[in-house]
Computed example of a mutant assay.
Amino acid sequence: MSVITFVCAGQMASALTFPVFENGHEVRLVGSPLDREIINGLRKDNYHITLKRTLHDGIKYYQIEEFEEALEGADLIIGGVSSFGLDWFCDEILPVLPEEVPLLTVTKGMVDREDGTMVPYPYIFEERQPEGKHLNFNAIGGPCTSYELADHDNSHVAFCGKDPKTLKYIRSLMATDYYHISISTDVVGVECAVALKNAYALGVTLAVGLAEKKDGKIGAQHYNSQAALFGQSMKEMGKLLNLVGGKPEHLVHGVGDLYVTVFGGRTRMIGTLLGRGLTFEQAMEDLKGVTLESIVIATRTARAVKKLAERGKVDLKEYPLLMHIDAILNQGAEVDIPWDAFTWDDLD
């Protein structure tokens, strides 16, 4: 039996306790400063108030002030912070983590540099660890919703990191007959692929709102247009993955994640509202208080691509959907899908 300490009690981290606990390991779930109510509820009856699932009896729960106690004897640390908690995690958690214990994070996202380079979060964590410290960073990517993982639906994800031995070790702790894990040392490929899906899921779900607007009925579905936007998303994501130097096979993780995201969640909500005809400001007012990683990723990716275009590295005409999404979010443009820009001639 190993001891696995989870930092942050959000939905995904808490869902990951299912395969870990069921593999016979000791699970310690530590709440962030924002998770106090979650931890208090779990201590009462194991019911997670946002995941809306009952966790296994026998899991140990800790408030953030008890973090050092939860770290004692840990064999693996799993960071469950969202991208909006990245600064807190870097400033407050990384300094106290022991170097000899590997870290696995669920945080998806990337940052664009001044020169247009796109850098995934595991590299940001590595850069922001205390000077002289050498933590063993690893990350999860792929299509896996917290609810369905907790319900034991078959899921295929990728664990990525620099050390193959560590990746094999972490997989041995967490793989089950429903949680299937590929491993890769291509951190950029895996993590950038799954980060990009947030931007393009917003693009695909524009078609949902457009269908509702056209039919005058909430819930109307036009699958041809959704499929066309999905296909264009896959095409542009593949080009971007190649641009950052990721292996093409990791597109499977990003496209799978795109599929999952299109069918539910916050990104679908914002895309649908925009497709119905709301301005970006009106849509954000409707979703006040909802954190939207899709907007951050779309903006950063478009900004990076435009910088690369200025340097002559790419042609903006190869990214018509991304450019239209950026125009909607950051330039006040109305939704007007550039369908003709998606077509091409392949003639011998």
Rank of each mutant, 00 (worst) to 15 (best):
P19D: 04
P19I: 04
P19M: 12
V20L: 15
F21E: 05
F21L: 11
F21S: 13
N23R: 15
E26F: 00
V27H: 05
R28M: 08
R28V: 08
V30P: 03
G31K: 06
P33Q: 03
P33C: 05
L34A: 13
D35I: 02
R36F: 03
N40L: 04
G41S: 15
R43Q: 14
K44D: 07
K44W: 04
D45F: 07
Y47K: 14
Y47P: 12
Y47W: 14
L51V: 11
T54P: 05
D57A: 15
K60W: 03
K60T: 15
Y61K: 04
Y61F: 15
Q63N: 14
F67N: 01
A70V: 10
A70E: 07
G73Y: 14
G73A: 11
A74Y: 03
D75N: 11
L76S: 08
I77L: 11
G79P: 04
G79C: 07
G80W: 07
V81I: 12
S82V: 01
F84S: 05
L86E: 07
D87S: 01
D87G: 00
F89R: 01
F89G: 00
C90K: 07
C90I: 13
D91H: 00
D91Q: 08
D91R: 02
L94A: 04
P95G: 14
P95S: 13
V96Q: 10
L97V: 07
P98C: 10
E99W: 01
E100C: 05
V101A: 05
P102D: 12
T107W: 02
M110N: 11
M110V: 09
V111T: 12
D112P: 01
R113C: 14
E114H: 13
E114I: 10
T117G: 09
T117S: 15
T117C: 09
P120N: 10
P120I: 03
Y121E: 07
Y121A: 03
P122F: 12
I124S: 07
F125I: 04
E126M: 06
E127M: 11
Q129E: 09
P130A: 06
E131H: 03
H134M: 06
L135K: 08
L135P: 08
N136V: 14
F137R: 11
N138P: 02
I140S: 06
G141I: 09
C144Q: 07
